[in-house]
Amino acid sequence: MNQLNYEEISTEFKNYFLNNYRNFIDEQIKEVKNSKFLINVSDYTSETIDEPHRIVTNFLKEKNIKNHRITNLYKTFEFEFDFYLLMLTFDERRKMDIELYEEIWRHNQKL
């Protein structure tokens, strides 16, 4: 079995994720701007929860990497690799989510 270079994979994933998630958020914002009705934030909340998982799953599939447990040398943490990848992008993802929710708020204020 080949040893995975987690640092290299993490860097590649972060770029992949940020590009894909940015496209996703941009599409959602465009949809909000084109709406003629009040928007229920919960519809978009579920999407912003599901989409990151889809992106991670697609990345692992494209790279032919099976999800697996990772740990450090001292066994002080242990979790699934997909969770680790999601957490790498947490701050950037939240910033993009805020852009979407602010646009929804502005849209609803106008109507």
Rank of each mutant, 00 (worst) to 15 (best):
L38Q: 11
M96G: 00
K75Y: 11
E51H: 09
N64I: 10
I104Y: 04
N5A: 02
N64E: 15
Q109H: 11
M87G: 12
N72S: 09
S35F: 04
Y84S: 01
E62Q: 03
N40R: 04
D26S: 11
E12R: 06
F17G: 00
V41D: 11
N40A: 08
L38F: 13
T89V: 15
I55W: 03
S46L: 02
I9F: 04
I49T: 14
R22G: 09
R54I: 13
T11G: 15
F17D: 00
L4P: 07
F81I: 01
W105V: 12
Q28G: 09
F81H: 05
F81Q: 00
E51P: 03
Y84D: 01
E51Q: 11
F81E: 03
I25N: 01
I25Q: 00
Q28H: 04
S42H: 10
M87H: 14
K14W: 03
T11W: 14
T71A: 04
S46Q: 04
N34I: 01
N67W: 07
E62T: 12
I29F: 00
K33M: 04
N34S: 08
E78R: 04
M87D: 12
E7Q: 15
K75V: 12
Y21K: 05
K61T: 13
D97F: 00
I65S: 09
T76E: 13
R93G: 05
L73P: 09
I49E: 15
K14R: 07
E99T: 13
E8V: 03
I104M: 04
N40I: 00
R54N: 14
L18Q: 09
Y21I: 00
D82I: 02
R54C: 14
I25K: 00
T45L: 08
Y6V: 02
K110G: 14
I70Y: 12
N67V: 06
E62V: 04
V32W: 00
T89S: 15
Q3E: 10
T57A: 15
E102H: 08
